[in-house]
Every structure is written in structure tokens, then in C-alpha cells.
Design a protein around this nucleic acid. Structure first.
Length: 362
DNA sequence: GTTATTTGACCGCA
DNA sequence: TGCGGTCAAATAAC
């Protein structure tokens, strides 16, 4: 508990410090010779940092007096209770929603959207490995979208009644970006074999020649072998929390690629810290296997700083982000920690934290 | 033979 | 009634 608070504190400090650092960089970019792109990028990063910090604070205020769920294994949706830190509005909604027939549509179901950018050449071979196994159950042309939307559900749907689903939609504007929308909550307890190369989502969409536009074709690569698929990477991974009207935290997690945690200076997640603070509490999903659309990507070190989200465009849509869970799938070959699922929920937030202490913000 | 994917059909909501 | 989401049979891959 104490460790958790310390970790949260570090998170806040890290985010704020990062914001400060980025602001400094932005200042340096204020001269006319600096590119607009660079400035915009910095602004986004700064906003991201502060949003992150604020979300931690907001959530902390919300959950301070509430018991925390154990992380990792998604709670059964039927087990939602008002004692959950994710209660508030969404709990009721979710209970209502989830009590319905699992097969019924749940349009109001809380969801979270991630944007996964595929870097051509280093490309991404599939949707993010969020530590769960997914099976595609449908694909649909969406009005106004150039690319079809893929529908996936947890492979443990039948065996364990896991109702989690996700939708993968290739972005129209940027074909290298996949928007992954998660719905439902994993109730499965995964105990699967290690990562295995799997069919790629990129291929999935690539195969659909009718959706190929000329512009895109140069981006599309021939179907890589399983071996080569390991060398693809994510350039950017944006995470949005949608439907936050629910304030639910049903998907209270970020998901981002991370590095191998080898740089203690840039990463607050040093290996010992991870082992001591995180791994011990992680669910099996933390070390879950590759999924049918798992990624095997290498991640540039810059993608993991401070909270590991720094250079990621982590966005929260709508209002507050009440809880967060961090998933940091990494290359099997690159990282000693393959899948990192870190829930900040796990961290107890103490409202007695000395925010009024000037030293904290120094 | 088993498992995963594809795809047309169906259902329900707006 | 159109559209998004899901089902389930057919097919492919392993």
C-alpha cells in the first residue's frame, strides 16, 4: 500500500516533471525556424503529461476511501459493486448492461479506444497485444470508413464466459493507424502458452484488396513470414478512453509499448521496481501469451519514459479518467518483461498525500 | 481433426 | 429503415 502510494507519487512527479521539461523544449521551439510539427508535437506531449497527472489526482480523490480491486484479472462484470473504485455512474450502468443477455448488443457499454500507428517498414503486425487472446468473429463495412471494421472477442468467451470484445478499425486519415476499441471486461483467467507468432492484423486488412487505395499501396507490405513479423514495431500508440460518461474504469487502462526498462534514468519503471511493486500483484494476464493478433514489435526507447507514456499520445476523451491500467506489450525478443499490465487501481491513493507540500512540486 | 477466419444473414437500436 | 454488432455455416489453416 505504501509502495503503491509511493509509486503514484512518482508517477505524478514524473508526469509533472516531464511536462515541465517538454514546456522547456517548446520554448526552445518558439523561434520561427522551428517546425510547426515539432511544436505541435510538444504541445500534445505536454497536454498528455498533464492530463495523465490530473487523471491520477482525480482518480485518487475518487478512490481514496474505496477498496481496490485486485488488478490483472478482470473482475466479473457481474461482480461490480458500489465499493469498486469504478463505481460512480458507470457501475450502475454496467450492471444493467451486463446483466442482459451477453449476446445482446450493449451500445452503451463503456469502451476504450486505442489508436495504434503502424510504422511502415518497421510496421506493426497486428493489434496491440493487450495480454488477451482474441478471436475474430466478424468484419463489417462501416459507413463512411474506407476500411472494414474487424470484430474480435475473447477466445475464452465460451470456456470462461469472458465477454470482452474489441473492434479494430483502420483509420481513414492515416492508414497506418488502427483504432482499437475495447468493450466489455475480461473475466477470463488466461493461462496460455508463450507468445507465438500470429496472423497479423495488418495482413488482415491488407488482404482486403478492395479497400486498398493507391495511396496506401506503397505502405502495404507483402505478407511477412512469422519470423519477419517479429521485427515490426509501433511508432505511436494512442489511447483514448471513450464513453467516459460512464466514468467507469471498465477499461481503466492505458496500453502502450514499452522498452526493456533498461534506462533507469528515463524510466521510472526500473526492473527491481517492477518486480517488487508490480509483478507480485499482477494477474496471469500480465504474462499472458500472444494472442491471435498479438504484436511483435520493437519499440523505440523514447516511447517509454517516466510513466512509460510520455511520448505516447495518451488522450482522455471527455472527462476524467478515473482509473488506469497500463499494458506494455513488448517485443518478446527485446524485453525481459514481455507484457506489462499495470493497473494504477492497484495503487492506493491517499488523500492525505501532501500536495500542499511545496517540496512535492519543487 | 481441430481451431481460426471469412462472410452473408440476422437482429436490435436509433 | 439503415446501420452497427453478432451469429453461424462454410472455408482455410495448421
Amino acid at each position: 500500500m505504501e509502495k503503491s502510494m509511493e509509486w503514484e507519487q512518482k508517477t505524478l512527479i514524473s508526469e509533472l516533471a516531464q511536462g515541465k521539461e517538454l514546456a522547456k523544449q517548446l520554448r526552445n521551439h518558439l523561434n520561427p525556424s522551428s517546425s510547426l510539427e515539432a511544436r505541435q508535437s510538444l504541445v500534445e506531449k505536454i497536454l498528455s503529461s498533464y492530463e495523465k497527472a490530473l487523471s491520477v489526482l482525480n482518480r485518487g480523490a475518487l478512490v481514496a476511501d474505496q477498496p481496490k480491486p485486485t488488478i490483472g484479472i478482470m473482475e466479473s462484470p457481474h461482480s461490480f459493486s458500489n465499493s469498486s473504485p469504478w463505481s460512480e455512474v458507470s457501475d450502475q450502468d454496467c450492471k444493467q448492461e451486463w446483466n442482459k443477455d451477453a449476446n445482446k448488443k450493449r451500445k452503451t457499454q463503456p469502451r476504450r479506444t486505442e489508436q495504434v500507428k503502424v510504422c511502415p517498414g518497421t510496421g506493426l503486425e497486428g493489434p496491440l497485444d493487450d495480454g488477451h487472446s482474441w478471436r475474430k468473429y466478424g468484419q463489417k463495412d462501416i459507413l463512411g470508413a474506407n476500411f472494414p471494421r474487424g470484430y474480435y472477442r475473447c477466445t475464452h468467451r465460451h470456456s470462461q464466459g469472458c465477454l470482452a470484445t474489441k473492434q479494430v478499425q483502420r483509420s481513414d486519415e492515416n492508414h497506418s493507424i488502427f483504432e482499437v476499441t475495447y468493450r466489455g471486461r475480461h473475466t477470463c483467467n488466461q493461462a496460455s502458452p508463450p507468445h507465438v507468432a500470429s496472423p497479423s492484423l495488418e495482413n488482415d486488412f491488407s488482404k482486403q484488396s478492395k479497400y486498398h487505395c493507391q495511396q496506401q499501396q506503397h505502405e502495404e507490405k507483402p505478407k511477412p513470414s512469422k519470423e519477419t513479423s517479429r521485427h515490426f514495431g509501433i511508432d505511436c500508440h494512442q489511447v483514448k478512453n471513450e464513453d467516459l460518461g460512464s466514468k467507469d474504469g471498465i477499461f481503466p487502462f492505458f496500453s502502450f509499448p514499452c522498452t526493456s526498462f533498461e534506462n533507469e534514468e528515463n524510466n521510472i519503471f526500473t526492473e527491481p521496481m517492477i518486480e517488487n511493486s508490480f509483478l507480485g500483484s499482477f494477474s496471469p494476464t500480465f504474462i499472458s501469451p500472444a494472442t491471435s493478433e498479438s504484436n511483435y514489435f520493437s519499440v523505440s526507447p523514447c516511447h517509454m519514459n517516466s510513466f512509460g507514456i510520455g511520448s505516447e499520445n495518451v488522450q482522455t476523451q471527455g472527462c476524467e479518467l478515473t482509473t488506469e491500467k497500463i499494458s506494455a506489450p513488448t517485443s518478446v525478443t527485446n524485453s525481459p518483461i514481455r507484457d506489462l499490465d499495470i493497473s494504477i487501481d492497484y495503487v492506493d491513493f491517499d488523500t492525505t498525500f501532501p500536495f500542499d507540500n511545496p517540496e512535492f512540486f519543487a
